[in-house]
Every structure is written in structure tokens, then in C-alpha cells.
Amino acid sequence: MIVAVLGASGNAGSEITRELARRGHVVRAIARNPDRIPTGDGITPVAGDAHDPATLADRLTGVDAVISALHFDVTADTLLTALRTAGVGRLLVTGGAASLEVASGQRLIDSPDFPPAWRDIAMGGIAFLEALRGVDDIDWTFFSPAAMIEPGPRTGQYRLGTDTLVTDNAGVSRISFADYAIAMVDELEAHRHPRARFTAAY
């Protein structure tokens, strides 16, 4: 596939870019600072600011799918407008874990130990997901990570979930950026969660 990665210079975006190229996809890697984008066969670095839907649409024209690894200061409306203008029908989003359930009816963000400093950023992700849930003309998928996503090895191992936080036997929810990227590209290829949210963790 020809895949555009938005935020391709960040931790998640750069790993997703590498994973796509590793599997033979053609990657249009878009970031405000293209000099920070990973290099390699199949990767074309492109300068672009996702806050401008008209400019972004120009960068997306001709791709089969878009994977967004952007922060949530870029709204769902901005991103969807750009996809519609470019004629792209598939969107996968690097989401947040805050809206995952940790108990029946209780989200991670509602937990008493959820860090207050992360709350505003987390609410942006929740708003983005809610906006996507009303969309039926774009084939979207929202990928909520584990509670902790961090540098680490590429093992190729993970467990899937939908709306509930996935934890290990010790109650810890974590995944490396490299394995997060594997799960994202697996979803791109297998298309298991159309117009839905999923999660993955060890």
C-alpha cells in the first residue's frame, strides 16, 4: 500500500514508519521537521503541518491509507476534512489509553491515581475518539495503547483488546513503541477493527 504517516518524526510515528517500510509498503512520512524522519528504502520524507487541512490534503492525495501519530491539538474535524478533500477513505489513529475501562463503567482517566498533569492531553484523545464514532464515510480505526508505551525491544508479541485496558499477570499495562508499531501495521493489513477502537499490550 501507499501509506501516509502523520507525525512521522515522533516516537510512535517513526516506529510505524520503519515497520511499514520493513514490510514493503510505500511510506509518505509527513512531519513539520522532515530531517528527523527515519530514512530507508520506501520512505519519502515530506514537510507538512497537519493544522492546515488544505495543505495536508495536498500531501495526502494518492495514498491508500493514513496513519496519524499526531498529538490531539490537531482535531478530528481537521484531519477528516483533509482526508475527504484528498479522497482517502482509510484512517488509523494513534490514540490514548485514558478512555479504556479498568472496571465496569470506570475509565482509566477516572482512576484516583491518574496523573493530573496528563488529564488535558488525555481529554483531547477522548474527544477525538468520540468525534470519530459519529463518522460513517471514512473507514477509521482508533488504536489505544497500553497505559505505558515506552522504548523497548521489538518482540512481535502482544495481546489484543477492545475497550478494556489489557494488563499482564502483575496488573501492569505496557508495550514498547516497536511492538505498538507492529500491532498498528497488523491492523492496517488485517483490517480487524473497522470503525472501532482496539488496544494492545503485553
Score class of each variant (00 low, 15 high):
I43K: 13
V93L: 07
D64A: 10
R174E: 09
L56T: 05
A201D: 01
I37Q: 04
G7T: 02
V63Q: 03
A31S: 15
Y180C: 03
G87N: 03
A98M: 07
D35L: 12
V185C: 02
P45S: 14
H71L: 12
A50N: 11
A8M: 06
G40P: 15
G7K: 03
R192F: 06
D58C: 08
L160P: 00
T199V: 02
I182R: 14
G156P: 07
I121G: 08
V26L: 12
D139M: 06
R192E: 14
P112T: 03
L60D: 07
G96N: 12
D77E: 15
A170M: 11
P116E: 09
E187N: 03
A196S: 15
A50G: 13
N11E: 01
V166G: 08
D168A: 09
N11H: 05
D41V: 14
T17P: 11
T75D: 07
M148F: 13
G134P: 00
R159W: 04
R59E: 13
A57D: 04
L129F: 12
G89S: 13
G156R: 09
L20E: 12
I2G: 00
A8N: 09
A122G: 06
R59P: 02
L6T: 06
L108Y: 10
A200N: 04
G152I: 07
P151N: 08
L79Q: 11
L20Y: 12
G40F: 13
M123I: 13
F177Y: 15
P151A: 05
W118I: 00
L56E: 09
P194D: 05
D186E: 07
A127F: 02
A183F: 03
H25C: 10
T75N: 11
G125A: 11
R174G: 06
D41H: 15
D77V: 11
D139Q: 09
A103P: 00
A117W: 10
G134I: 01
G95I: 02
M148W: 12
I126M: 09
V27Q: 13
T17G: 12
T94C: 12
R32V: 06
D136V: 04
R28Q: 13
G95Y: 02
L188N: 06
L20R: 14
R154G: 00
V5M: 08
P151Q: 09
I121W: 14
R195P: 07
T167V: 15
A57Y: 01
G10T: 01
T75I: 09
G10W: 01
I67P: 03
M1N: 06
A65G: 05
D77R: 14
I138K: 08
A69L: 04
R28S: 14
A57K: 03
